[in-house]
Amino acid sequence: MVQEKCRLLSSEQVAPGHWVLRLAAPAIASFARAGQFVHVRIPTTYDPLLRRPISIMLPEARQGNLRLLTCAVGRGTRMLVETPIGTELDLLGPLGTAFPLPGGPELSEAKEVLLVAGGMGVAPLVFLADTLRGMDHHAYVRGLFGAATEDLLVSWTEFAARCDEFYVSTEDGSAGEQGRVTDTLVAQLERGQADVVYTCGPIAMMAQVAQMCHDAGVACYCSFEQRMGCGVGACLSCAVPAAGGGYVRVCRDGPVFAADRLDWEAILDDI
């Protein structure tokens, strides 16, 4: 983890309300792993006060750049996407846990993987797909991407280009299958071709994905989001309920959790 001053190189609107920021962040880009995030300070103001946690969509390690996908939902993120190009932003990162990879200790046998993205949850999965492609004996990657409408399939080409197979669904049927991404997941799990599922998206969606994987006996890892304070595990603000009682910290114990580590019922109660 480092605190790095990063020049904003570009800010591109990629969907209604969604921007991709490119930053010169050589230190963070050099050791970021898929699933990790950066904590970004809103420049030159104490109002809003806190940093914004944003997951890393892609490090361009050779150029030393980072790509971040952000949704301008509130005042802070709006100020961030309106920051003039060339401004130096204060980033803390890379923070948190990464997705465990096939061939690693948790997933030594995994050969076929499913990536399940909902809306802007695609960001860490683009990075993961990119990482998987770069591995020596890379696993077969199926990407599933769902959103409400076609124009909210944010950066789908980036995702699709890094998957061996790619499936799209929209709730209104404007692109791909009409329905939810979890409908597509049912069919995939029934075929029994997934050794591990990685997911990121709205909490209700991830809860469903977690349940389906649990029922199918497939390992599942999800990338989480929560209002956050320090970002380094000190303030305990970003707690989410853990399976078996107590809480885990999204910033330090996560944002990537094994799905069975969380108490989904309590999590759904809190939203």
């Binding site: 802070g76 209002r227 304070g229 303030c235 305990l236 603000s237 707690a239 989410v240 309920p241």
Partner: peptide, 18 residues
């Protein structure tokens, strides 16, 4: 500790209930 959410941002400040 308390049930989440535990933090909220306010004008030039923040609320916490850890």
């Amino acid at each position: 500790g308390n049930r989440p959410p535990r933090i909220a941002e306010t004008a030039a400040g923040m609320l916490n209930a850890i």
